[in-house]
């Protein structure tokens, strides 16, 4: 089973995503960017297959997490789907340039997210 790490500071987003993904994936959720980075950084040999990453989070925001992963070859195979309420062109470009696989804006369709995850992981 593929594993997915969810990083979102919003409790309801974590609940919703966990609920939606729990049947097909091994899901873990964290609530801030620093925690997300720590988990990735210390468990480099046991990385999740995919991260669903929010931008506006305490600790480190999503862009900064991406920036840290971007210069690091341990994370070359790690897929990142951004899921954020920031929907401006510049935000999307910034994330994709920093190595995000895909970008979705909130409000989002869970079915669409599931389809994208499936495509990315297969």
């Amino acid at each position: 089973m593929h594993s997915v790490l969810i990083a979102d500071d919003d409790e309801e987003m974590r609940e919703l995503l966990t609920f939606k993904l729990q049947n097909g994936y091994d899901v873990t959720a964290v609530s801030d960017g620093a925690e997300c980075w720590n988990r990735l950084d210390t468990a480099a040999d046991d990385l999740p297959d995919l991260v669903v990453l929010d931008v506006m989070m305490p600790g480190l925001n999503g862009y900064r997490v991406l920036d840290r992963m971007d210069g690091d070859d341990r994370f070359d195979d790690l897929e990142v789907i951004m899921l954020t309420s920031r929907g401006k062109e510049d935000d999307i470009v910034r994330a994709l340039e920093a190595g995000a696989t895909d970008y979705m804006t909130k409000p989002f369709s869970a079915n669409e997210l599931l389809a994208r995850i499936k495509r990315v992981l297969e």
């Binding site: 919003d10 309801e12 987003m13 919703l16 909130k106 409000p107 989002f108 369709s109 869970a110 079915n111 669409e112």
Partner: peptide, 15 residues
């Protein structure tokens, strides 16, 4: 409350 919060977050079939 949950309804209000989730309607801000989801679209598509769930909505």
């Amino acid at each position: 409350d949950l309804l209000r919060e989730y309607l801000e977050r989801v679209r598509g079939r769930d909505r």
